[in-house]
Write a protein that binds this DNA or RNA. Structure first.
Lengths: 154, 154
DNA sequence: CCGGATCCGTTTCGATACTG
DNA sequence: CAGTATCGAAACGGATCCGG
C-alpha cells in the first residue's frame, strides 16, 4: 500500500474533516459510481468517463477503506478480483451526494451539458419524492450486491 | 487575475461538474465560512483556522465568482476593501453543505474531534428541524449583510 | 493596513508502462 | 485483473512584494 507522494487527508481542522473527504473529487466520484452505477471492481472504477488514473484510484480506495466508508471483499469463487462495497457510513452518504447533484443540476446548467440525465431535476423542493428516490437507490444497491462476497481483513 | 499555474476545474465530464466544484476543499470551506461565520472579506477568509494561502484564496474567489456562486461588492464608504456575498445559487448550497456536515458529524467522529460543535448532531433523521435550521441560517445570513454594498462588475 | 500578484520549493496529480 | 513504479506537469504553501 506504499503511499508516498500521495494525498493524505489532513483532518484535525475543526469541522472540516467531512469537508476533507467530500472536498475530494475522486472520492466523491467513486462513491457515486458505487451507488449509482453499481460499480464494484477496480476495473469498473477505472473505466468511468472521468478517467481516474490507477494510482489515484488505488490511493482513494485505500483511504475510503481506512475511513470505513467502503469495504474490500473477495469473491468466494474468484480470488483474483475484489469487490468494494459501501459500509453503512458509505450508504449514509447517498442523500448527501444526491443533494449535490440536485444542486448542480439547477445551478450549473451552463457548465453541465447534461450528457446523461439522472432524472433528478424534479426532486428539488419535493421532499417526499426525494426521500423516495433515495431509498430506492439504497435498496437497489443492496439488492444487487453479489451474494458470494467475503470481507477481507488484510 | 492572471491565473497561470492555478487549478482549473475541468468540468465537461458527465454529471460531474457539480462534483468538480464540491470536490474542492477550498471552495467548500469558503462557502461554509460565508454562511456559517459570516465572513465576507479577503482577510477574514485568509484567517480561517484551515489556513488557506492567499494565492489559492484569490484563485478560488475568482472561480466562484465566475460560476456565479458568489459576488464581489464594494463598500460604498471604503474603497479599500471588498465584500464577497453569496448569490442565490450560492445560498442554495446551504442545504447541501449542511448535509455534508451532518454526515461527517455522525460518521467521522473519530477523525473529527468536534473542536467546535455547530449543533447539528440532532438534525439527522429530523427533517423538520433540519429545514428550520437551514432557513434560519439563510435568513440570518441575509439579515447580517451590510447595507452599504454595491455590486462590482469589473 | 488591505487585497491581491509573483516567485519558488515541495507535494500531488495524471498518463502510461510495468508486474504478480 | 489489480494494482505499483516512474516521471513530467500541475497545484499547493509560504513568503514576499506591491499598488491603493
Amino acid at each position: 500500500m506504499s503511499d508516498k507522494n500521495q494525498k493524505q487527508f489532513r483532518s484535525g481542522c475543526p469541522v472540516s474533516s467531512s469537508l476533507d473527504l467530500i472536498g475530494d473529487k475522486w472520492s466523491l466520484l467513486i462513491i457515486r459510481d458505487m451507488f449509482y452505477f453499481h460499480k464494484r471492481t477496480f476495473k469498473e472504477f477505472s473505466s468511468s468517463p472521468e478517467k481516474i488514473s490507477t494510482n489515484i484510484l488505488s490511493n482513494r480506495l485505500n483511504q475510503l477503506e481506512n475511513m470505513k466508508i467502503i469495504q474490500k471483499n473477495q469473491f468466494k469463487d474468484n480470488k483474483k478480483s475484489f469487490a468494494y462495497t459501501l459500509t453503512e457510513s458509505g450508504l449514509c452518504l447517498i442523500p448527501t451526494i444526491i443533494e449535490i447533484l440536485i444542486w448542480g443540476d439547477h445551478n450549473l446548467q451552463d457548465l453541465n451539458p447534461g450528457l446523461f440525465d439522472l432524472g433528478i431535476s424534479d426532486l428539488k423542493n419535493n421532499q417526499v419524492a426525494k426521500e423516495n428516490y433515495i431509498s430506492k437507490i439504497r435498496e437497489s444497491y443492496l439488492k444487487k450486491l453479489p451474494h458470494s462476497l467475503a470481507p477481507l481483513t488484510n
